[in-house]
């Protein structure tokens, strides 16, 4: 328990200082100690002073570097410096005496080891006689690691098979491919332009416009097909002549189903049905828009 307090000390300097002072003038400080340090007060103070001192000493001997830190800390505090220092010196002396007494044998042993000249070796100073064994083991480990590394590398290589990092520049092949793709895009955009130019300014959701769009699309379609558009145009300009030129019965004409939407004066029934048919064929988009 006393050790615990000691461990807690470095973080709390004021407490420690009080502790030192208390040791210097025991009877005076005792009541003060309880009141000032709340965390100390709830602990049982049954450990008598001598034991505590002993514990402290041991702890200090155990971690001597910490002790030095403490010393420095306390040196930096000039107020209570003298009595603390005297205390310290006393303690250090005692500890030294103990150390000298207890560890002479150890020191001798240590010195003998240190003074021994060890030939330089990759294994370092190995005290046991199994030097050879250890060497073998190390070599084995090395070989194993090497083998493992190779296997890993191979696996990695297999995983990366076919994976190619592209060059920073465009080589001729890539340029060619981009050219091909560009051509395709251009073709499509031109086709879209051609198709959508015809229906410009018309709203497909309005029925009137939808009809017009249908008509224009059909014209565009036939113009793609070729000759039929011409005949349709002819029919449009001279209705009466068109009647006279071809066979009298409409189905016998070449362009019966194709152009009779233009012939307004012919019977209405087939005209509407045909238009509807075309509409359904080319796009049922405008009808079901949702």
């Amino acid at each position: 328990m006393a050790e615990e307090t000691h461990v807690a000390e470095p973080s709390k300097f004021p407490n420690k200082r009080k502790l030192g002072m208390r040791k210097a003038s025991k009877s005076r400080k005792k009541p003060n100690f309880d009141g000032r340090t709340g965390n100390f007060s709830n602990k049982p103070k049954k450990v008598d002073r001598k034991m505590r001192k002993l514990f402290r000493k041991r702890a200090r001997a155990y971690n001597s570097d910490e002790d030095e830190d403490e010393d420095e800390d306390e040196n930096s505090m000039p107020v209570i410096r003298d009595d603390v220092e005297s205390e310290k010196e006393e303690e250090v002396e005692e500890a030294e005496a103990e150390l000298v007494d207890g560890s002479r044998a150890f020191r001798m042993a240590f010195k003998s080891i240190i003074n021994k000249m060890v030939p330089h070796d990759i294994l370092g100073p190995v005290m046991s006689a199994h030097k050879k064994l250890i060497g073998e083991k190390l070599a084995e480990e090395e070989a194993e690691r090497k083998f493992k590394g190779e296997a890993k590398k191979e696996k990695q290589l297999l995983a990366e098979k076919g994976h190619v990092k592209p060059a920073n520049y465009l080589d001729s092949q890539e340029k060619f491919l981009i050219g091909v793709a560009t051509k395709g895009v251009v073709k499509l955009f031109n086709a879209v332009n051609k198709a959508q130019h015809a229906q410009k300014g018309l709203d497909p959701s309005r029925s009137k416009d939808a009809k017009a769009i249908r008509k224009r699309r059909k014209e565009a379609f036939f113009s793609e097909l070729g000759k039929t558009s011409k005949s349709a145009a002819k029919g449009h300009t001279s209705k009466g002549k068109a009647d006279g030129e071809g066979p009298a019965w409409a189905p016998l004409r070449d362009n019966y189903m194709l152009t009779n939407s233009k012939l307004k004066d012919w019977d209405k029934m087939p005209e509407t049905t045909v238009a509807d048919d075309f509409g359904r064929m080319s796009e049922d988009s405008s009808s079901d828009d949702d």
Binding site: Q173, V180, G184, V192
Partner: peptide
């Protein structure tokens, strides 16, 4: 795509498959 109704803004990407006759590989 329907060229009558397609919006050009929706054409953002293109996938190209090019068959090479000599190597019989498809890029």
């Amino acid at each position: 795509i329907d060229i009558n109704t397609v919006k050009l803004s929706s054409c953002q990407r293109i996938v190209l498959l090019n068959y090479n006759k000599d190597t019989k590989l498809i890029d």
